[in-house]
Write a protein that binds this DNA or RNA. Structure first.
Lengths: 193, 193
DNA sequence: CTCCTATGCAAGTAGTTACTTACATGCTAC
DNA sequence: GTAGCATGTAAGTAACTACTTGCATAGGAG
């Protein structure tokens, strides 16, 4: 059995349990059991429980995939572009969902997680502001507070993400894609002069 | 010392600690210390730790204050009404902020908290759909998927709330009121035919 | 074959947790 | 003034926690 597989199994188990129950309630024994590993193996790999968390945080440190894909294939048609941005954001957030949930639960005890997560909207905001300014320059959107507009689109998408990730279909059974498309359509129209 | 005051101090302390650290990490001893009460007093009042949580959940069970204020003073001017709805929603969420945070952290272990919190957007959604239909009937907004539109406004406002409640001014220093006004202005314009 | 590394297994430790019991004390209502 | 109720204090318990140590074993690399 290679080290890599074992360490990865432990990380996966920890990610799942900590995101579900929180850091304190996710015991090393439970993590070991889920990873099908002896409890000592965790300590041999990561030193202590906090070392395991730190490894997870490092693994999820923001990679600029969202920024990168946002800059590709810009059509300079407002609704088309914003829809693509929003869908990509949603998919990206879903892919790091467990990590986001850990961030929600442990931000007070491990502030560095919070800083890592705050990075996502910050970079997204800057990209959007840049895009809006360019669009205004092209005369395709009206004059508004671009930062407020960017934050609004982010809030909108974050809201959709949390609603689906946390409440599932309790609030609505509308397909996510349809929801995002409709909301972006309304938002785009509101920006057009 | 009256019973009421003591129980309330315990509840306040528990609310603070559980919302900060989570249920498991908030020990009964720490709660007792913060409430300036002997640890046994907690058990005499609430039986056990879970009883304390249940008392908190009961206390925050949805009261229809948001629904009520939404129905008052409707002007049937889209931007005016949506701004008021949004501001009221934001203030209401801020007032139950600690409880919302507990809901985020403990939803897996105590599903009934989740159900309680999902109630807020559900009722808000119904009120909004009703309002949108009426507005459409009056010819003041165009034909859209009203449910999607309602969910979008909720997502938008929830996003603003979480951003401020969780990240503070890391992402932006724009005043909340200005942010809400701008986002509602864009959204309203997008709904107008 | 023979190291070496990763892992399992067994046993244990010191600290913490939720919770209990028994008894003392002080305030309030009658 | 005394009976009763809410609270404090002290001591303890059983279970669980993160973490350690020593030894056995299996598989791969040289």
């Amino acid at each position: 059995m290679a080290t890599k597989e074992t360490a990865q199994r432990i990380i996966d188990a920890a990610l799942q349990l900590i995101s579900e129950k929180g850091y304190t309630a996710a015991t090393t024994k439970a993590i070991a059991d889920l990873a099908q590993v002896n409890e000592v193996t965790i300590f041999r790999h990561f030193g202590n429980k906090e070392g395991l968390l730190k490894t997870i945080v490092d693994k999820f440190s923001y990679n600029p995939i969202l920024q990168k894909t946002m800059r590709e294939e810009v059509t300079w048609d407002l609704e088309t572009d914003l829809t693509r941005f929003s869908m990509q954001y949603f998919e990206y957030m879903m892919s790091i969902k467990d990590f986001v949930m850990i961030g929600f639960k442990e931000s007070m005890q491990f502030p560095e997680i919070n800083a890592e997560i705050a990075n996502v909207p910050l970079l997204f905001k800057n990209e959007l502001i840049h895009y809006f300014k360019e669009m205004h320059h092209k005369g395709k959107i009206r004059e508004v507070n671009f930062e407020a507009a960017a934050l609004s689109l982010i809030a909108l998408n974050f809201g959709h993400f949390i609603s689906r990730a946390r409440l599932g279909t309790i609030v609505s059974t509308l397909p996510t894609e349809e929801l995002i498309k409709t909301s972006v359509a309304i938002f785009s129209r509101g920006l057009t002069s």
